[in-house]
């Protein structure tokens, strides 16, 4: 397995875990605590690594990858969780926790597109 397979796998796993964890909190009507945000930070760290590794791989690849599109997805996916976390923390309610679920789902959706773009499929 190559580096980007590991990163992609880690993003999928962490994304699903964050989404499910937050969903459980919403269902139980509990607020997200430090542990949840530590998990979010871990996912964010992997996404930042992905941004760096992605740019390096893009520079060295001979694949037919749309550079602008690929980098914009790499950057966009990094922004989703921090914005979601701040937006969620600004209102500590059940809906605020729901924002975390949506942010995690956004990351998963973007990661799917990112993999598509990398493999040369699907246009803009």
């Amino acid at each position: 397995m190559s580096v980007n397979d590991w990163i992609t796998g880690a993003v999928y796993v962490l994304g699903v875990v964050v989404a499910l964890w937050s969903l459980v909190l919403v269902i139980r009507d509990e607020l997200a605590q430090d542990r949840t945000f530590a998990l979010l930070a871990t996912a964010e760290l992997v996404l930042l690594v992905q941004l760096v590794v992605g740019c390096i791989l893009l520079a060295g690849t001979d694949r037919d990858v749309s550079g602008v599109l690929f980098v914009s997805y790499l950057v966009g996916i990094v922004l989703a969780l921090p914005i979601g976390a701040f937006w969620s923390l600004a209102e500590r309610t059940r809906s605020g926790t729901g924002v975390l679920v949506i942010a995690a789902l956004t990351v998963l959706a973007l990661e799917v597109r990112l993999a598509d773009i990398w493999s040369g499929g699907l246009g803009a």
Binding site: S88, E91, T93, V99
Partner: peptide, 11 residues
């Protein structure tokens, strides 16, 4: 932008 509106704004 509060309550359910908070999630809606994000989406």
């Amino acid at each position: 932008s509060s309550g359910p509106g908070r999630m809606l704004v994000f989406v």
